[in-house]
Design a binder for these strands. Structure first.
Lengths: 339, 339
DNA sequence: GCTTGGCACTCGGCTGCTGCGAGTGCCAAG
DNA sequence: CTTGGCACTCGCAGCAGCCGAGTGCCAAGC
């Protein structure tokens, strides 16, 4: 009962602060959220909440603002996920439906997400290891150079130039193409290593070094999660949360240009199957200690194709943001799954 | 003579202001650049320069700062291009040499440029219409869906899904592949429209609708300059030129996320064959009226593959920036040309 | 006729002061 | 446990005053 009201007070503080960006005081709180108690009572509760580390005051005799811990509690226990309106869902769908290819899907998604949430949006391109091979193409560029193109069922195209030790002719290329496709088409890339390792043995001896090289390249292309691409949009939104950001803005932008950092933030959310929130220091990135990351995976069930999410100030409308991220992820997943 | 000294004064003002970011006064000017005249004389010159619109004072009784027009004169007549040191050239080269594919080249270039100039860097992906077809691949996805992959000699890979009205089999695909390659390999994409138009006539009648669709797709893919991709890096550098930017930062970031705007800025420079500078309102983008754009084309001579450049505050070290842009463009051009 | 030193004037920015008000903590009474 | 009262804190806005960099103008000098 008492405990309940305290949580209610915390929720009220978070909600008011998100709205106004100003420390919220006991009086305003008691008035605006009909809590049925006096400001003095609220003050007692606030005192307790501060004691426990959920809120803090920026300076003596100012209102309170939530701490990382406070936001965390809010997200975990106090907020549902605002469902999007039917019109919003339709808007998302129709905006994404116009996409003509993979690049377009990703670009549209990231822009949509940025616009919707008014935050910085990040979308990871579908990862190969979660998709399967649809076709492998081998093209002769010159007698000693081959271009290998791997096409996946998500429409992603990965290319690689292979230098061959021995010169090869068109006929041999056909042979290689047939062998590779026969062995790999339909394979999940994640399962491929074994199959790939067995490849050289299946082919006539003089081609083995060449196939070995290609096998290596296939593996490298697939396993290498380093080179995964991401799209970002809405960095302009960072300036919205102006004041307290001002100094750190530069650091945040720098961190966001580090692919590695982003991949860790977004990538770690993709397997969970639900929207995850990292608040402040939970991001494990020092420059982002005043921000929060809301991310999720997209794509069919356990085999997430990639991750997407937004980065914004800790002071953000979590229920709405989580709903938006979830909705966009759902539609993108459907779009790519059906493709 | 008199005219000469005035220009010297303008140059000194630009150089000092770029360095200090503070309005520069007559006294400091006379001291720091041994002009051989007294502050009073400098004041007279400054007065004249202001009359002519090359400099202005932010408020009465402050020093002068250059106007758009002043920077323009400086760039046109007063500044050479600082040559890069040998070490710098080597650094550029070795950084770019490590690139493994086209994506990597572009990404490295844009990062390099951003780091070098400490500005926002933009690199346009090589445009197809300036390159030639190396190979066209056709893959059967399902009886009515074909994937066409166009590979250019710059290593760019463009993909397109074709819906066929009539079902096609593997054999037909082979035929299509042969026909397309025979007609188009080695063609400059810019020259292709005619060849493409003639294609349907060369093939047996029942395939004509299909080929027509593909021909349309080829043209669309090539001619469409809309979808050209660009890479950007170093947005964090915008915060460096803090104060006067503060309010407009948001607008600038927003403008830079508009592909169309960027393409116009960078693209227009690619054909000139030299480094071009757009200062302030010359950019024709309102949000960028307090910035300058230094851009150039890269790639062999008249057939520029694409454009690259940087966006920064008007108050920028033009000689150095121009040198850096030129150098990076040169190396990238060589790298892609030799590929 | 250009250059120069002198001089009065302007004005933005810094410093220090004051008053206001929002918000707190504590306490004693209900 | 809740509530009203009360003294206290402290950030902030507003104002005055000073300082100094920088200017424009003018009369004397080369």
């Amino acid at each position: 009962m008492l405990e309940d009201r305290r949580l209610e007070v915390l929720r009220a503080i978070v909600e008011d602060f998100v709205l106004s960006n100003e420390p919220v005081g006991s009086k305003a709180l008691a008035e605006r959220h009909n809590l049925g108690v006096s400001p003095a009572t609220v003050r007692n509760d606030m005192s307790a909440l501060e004691e426990e580390g959920y809120i803090t005051q920026p300076h003596t005799s100012a209102g309170r603002i939530p701490t990382d811990k406070g936001y965390r509690l809010f997200v975990d226990r106090l907020s549902g996920v605002k469902p999007l309106s039917r019109a919003e869902r339709r808007a998302i769908q129709s905006f994404l439906e116009g996409a003509v290819d993979l690049d377009d899907v990703v670009n549209r998604s990231v822009r949509l997400l940025a616009q919707l949430t008014r935050q910085v949006a990040v979308v990871q391109y579908p990862t190969m290891s979660a998709s399967s091979v649809r076709h492998i193409e081998v093209v002769l560029l010159s007698p000693r150079r081959l271009l290998m193109v791997i096409i996946t069922d998500t429409g992603r195209v990965e290319q690689r130039i292979i230098e061959s030790l021995a010169p090869v002719d068109e006929e041999t290329v056909g042979e290689l193409r047939a062998t590779l496709n026969c062995a790999l088409t339909g394979q999940r890339l994640a399962d491929a290593p074994g199959t790939v390792a067995a490849l050289p043995a299946q082919i006539r001896p003089e081609l083995r070094p060449c196939v070995a090289t290609m096998a290596g390249a296939v593996l490298e292309t697939m396993v290498e999660p380093q080179e995964e691409r991401i799209a970002m949009a809405g960095t302009a939104n960072l300036t919205r949360a102006t004041v307290d950001f001002a100094d750190s803005l530069r650091l945040i932008l720098e961190a966001l240009e580090e692919q590695v950092v982003l991949m860790k933030l977004i990538g770690s959310a993709r397997e969970t199957g639900t929207v995850t929130v990292r608040i402040g220091r939970e991001t494990d990135v020092d420059a982002l200690r005043s921000t929060a990351v809301v991310a999720t995976g997209y794509g069919r069930g356990p085999f997430a194709l990639g991750g997407m999410g937004v980065v914004g100030p800790m002071r953000m409308d979590y229920p709405w943001t989580m709903a938006a991220v979830r909705a966009v992820a759902k539609y993108v997943g459907e779009l790519l799954g059906a493709d």
